[in-house]
């Protein structure tokens, strides 16, 4: 799973959000390291909706502008959970090996 996909799914994990909300949340989640621009965001949302991982929750008009809220679907949540588990396993392995290195366990 590519990083923008992971971050978008993470941004939608707790609650539905609109496009600009996802952008801001992704920036916050990544500690300001990732800026998700509109072109990237909507190309990703287009694919995520096709895959059935994300769906439209509701629409609102704020200051004359359309805001469409997106939510994480059950298949999307399952896929995100699987990715989190995969990353956790990798992180654990990296952590263990670094610790072994520091204690002189490996050459």
């Amino acid at each position: 799973m590519r990083e923008p996909t992971f971050l978008i799914l993470t941004a939608l994990a707790a609650r539905p959000q609109h496009g600009y909300g996802i952008q801001r949340d992704v920036q916050e989640i990544s500690g300001g390291r990732v800026t998700l621009r509109a072109g990237t965001l909507y190309a990703a949302l287009d694919r995520l909706r096709e895959d059935g991982w994300v769906d439209v929750d509701r629409e609102e008009v704020v200051d004359g502008r359309l805001r469409r809220y997106y939510r994480l679907t059950e298949p999307g949540a399952t896929r995100l959970a699987a990715e989190v588990e995969r990353l956790r396993a990798h992180t654990r392995a990296a952590h263990n090996r670094l610790r072994a290195r520091l204690t002189g366990g490996t050459a």
């Binding site: 609109h18 496009g19 600009y20 952008q23 509109a38 965001l41 909507y42 287009d46 502008r65 359309l66 805001r67 469409r68």
Partner: peptide, 13 residues
């Protein structure tokens, strides 16, 4: 489907 919505996001940002 998304044109108006994208313009809103672009202008918000």
């Amino acid at each position: 489907r998304h044109g108006e919505e994208m313009l809103g996001v672009l202008m918000d940002g």
